[in-house]
Each structure stands twice: as C-alpha cells, then as structure tokens.
C-alpha cells in the first residue's frame, strides 16, 4: 500500500465513533479524589460543597479523564471502527503508541456520587508524520463526558501510533572515511603511528596544512614533513545537530584548531560539553580509533581560559 493509499484509508475513519455508550466504572467518589490529590501533591477539596450539603465533595476539574479510564484490564467499549483503525495501523508497521497531548474543557463540576457516561468520536487522523520516536499517524479522539446525563466536560486526547525508529548507540566505525590519495597519504600514515605531521616548504620555510604537493607561498614543490606539537587553540567551531551522521550522536562539536605551529585543521573537540566551547580555548592532541581508522582529535581545557 502506498503512503497516499494508507492516508486515504485512515482519513475515512474521521468522524466515526470510538466509544458508544461508555460508562464510568465507579461513580465519582471521595476515596479516588483523595488518592489523586495525594499523588499530585495538592490539597484535597473541601468536604462540603456550599449550597449542596455536607458529605458532597467537588472533584478537581483536571481529574476529568480519571472517571472514564478503563483500568489495567485494557480498553473496553471501543467500537469496531476504532479497532479497525488500530489494526490498519498495526499492519502498516505502526505498532507502538504514545500519548502526546490532551485538551480539556470543563462545563460543569463533578461531585461525589455523580454517575459518569461518555461517548467518543475519532476527530482526526493525521497524515504521515516523522518524529524523533518514529514515523506514524496522530489520532485525536474527542470524548464528551456526562454526569447524571448532563454534559460535564470535553476531553480531547491525542496519541501517536508509530513505527519505532531504530535507536542504537552510534558506532565510531561507521564514521565517514578520510579521503586519501598520493598527495596526503603521508599525513594519514603519520596518524596511524600517532604522529601529527604538517608540511614545511624546504625552499621558503613556510609550514602548511592541508597537505599539498606545492607551496602556496613560493610555489616550490619541495617539502618535508614535520611533527606538530599537538598544542593549539579553538579558532572556530560548529555544534552539529542535523542531519544525522553515521557514527556520531548529535549534538557533537567540530573545531577549527589553530596549532601552535600556526596552521589550522578541522577535528573533533572532545572532553567538553558543546555549550561550553569558546573560541580561544586551549586544546591538546589525542588519537582515537574509529573502526580500523586512527583519527587525531583535540581535547579542550576549560581551565585554560
């Protein structure tokens, strides 16, 4: 089934009943109000409602959903239409569910002794959405809650039914590989032996990075490799959030490091939270292994600032 086909099938459920003739399992009662208020850490209501009489308490409005919940035995009273909708999403791989948000309107207070009845309708089924949890569809139901037959509140509840995104720890072995050819192979050979090598023009003496087969200053093709001290500072940096990159967990920091030798290179900044990185922060070279590849990275030192 295509995405468009599925969306069309899902949309057909909008406006259909989700629950017909639902009944609260118990009347509104003082014990449940007390439990709820203790769990929420809020004071309980007055034991008597003015003008109604002693022994009758008013439930906090935010308890609205409490009186229609079906308990641990699972949902009861759902319509065939709602069950079909869920089955359709299950078959499309949307097997996980999470409640995302809820809106309530309070029309009349609920008091101890009130008998609760309710009806729910499937208000909307969203187009396919991709979230951090996974890709799926939001289902919004609208429940009308009655106390002794009188409309007392409206409870709009939204869930995401989704195919869970694969979540696993990024493996450094999956990082993009360096691009290596005859011009820069010497650098990566140095890294493999835990030496950070830059080039020095043997004609004019200028030190350079990135590696090139000629001097940008004097044009000479003659050069030698010299080992850098590994000391440097953060010259600029980026904190990467999007898109996801294999082998990295966002957010991660990438620095433009200015080495003590005066040349700059791109590398990972480690040992400091991305939010605490500053330009000018001192850094020192380390080597890490990403799969079969050694990489030079730089540890940042906050105390040096």
């Amino acid at each position: 089934m295509t995405v468009a086909d599925l969306s069309a099938q899902l949309t057909a459920y909008e406006g259909r009943s989700a629950v017909l003739g639902g009944r609260g399992r118990d009347p509104v009662d003082a014990a449940m109000i007390r439990h709820w208020c203790e769990a929420m850490g809020v004071p309980g209501p007055d034991p008597a409602v003015p003008g109604v009489g002693p022994g009758v308490a008013e439930a906090p409005p935010a308890m609205l959903q409490v009186w229609i919940m079906s308990g641990l035995s699972g949902a009861v009273g759902r319509t065939a239409a709602y069950e079909e909708l869920v089955a359709l999403l299950d078959r499309a791989g949307c097997t996980a569910v999470v409640a995302t948000d809820c809106e309530q309107e309070y029309l009349r207070p609920l008091r101890t002794g009130d008998e609760i009845t309710f009806d729910a309708v499937i208000e909307s089924v969203s187009p396919r959405k991709t979230t951090a949890l996974g890709t799926g569809h939001f289902i919004t139901t609208r429940t009308e809650i009655r106390a002794n037959g009188e409309l007392a509140g409206i409870h709009r509840f939204r869930v995401l039914r989704y195919a869970p995104a694969r979540t696993r720890t990024a493996s450094p072995a999956e990082r993009p590989r360096p691009v290596i050819n005859r011009d820069n192979a010497g650098f990566w050979e140095g890294v493999a032996g835990h030496r950070l090598l830059i080039q020095r023009c043997t004609a004019c003496g200028r030190q350079r990075f990135p590696w090139l087969p000629g001097c940008g200053e004097c044009g000479s093709p003659l050069w030698e490799a010299v080992e850098a001290s590994g000391e440097g500072v953060v010259f600029s940096y980026v904190v990467m959030h999007h898109p996801p990159v294999p082998g990295f967990e966002a957010p991660y920091a990438v620095g433009l490091i200015e080495l003590a030798e005066g040349v700059r290179m791109i590398s990972s900044l480690v040992g400091v939270a991305p939010a605490r990185i500053r330009i000018g922060m001192p850094v020192a070279l380390e080597f890490v292994r990403a799969g079969d590849q050694e990489l030079p990275v730089f540890r940042a030192y906050e105390e040096g600032l």
Binding site: P176, R177, N181
Partner: peptide, 18 residues
C-alpha cells in the same frame, strides 16, 4: 573519490563536518 577536490573536502569528513 580521491581527486584533488575530494581530498580538499575530505579533511572534515571523518569529524562529521560534511
């Protein structure tokens, strides 16, 4: 690919600057 352009861009790739 390990052309001159590839190598120039490639210095950032293993560090996720891509």
């Amino acid at each position: 690919e390990p052309s001159a352009e590839g190598v120039a861009l490639g210095w950032g790739l293993p560090f996720g600057l891509l």
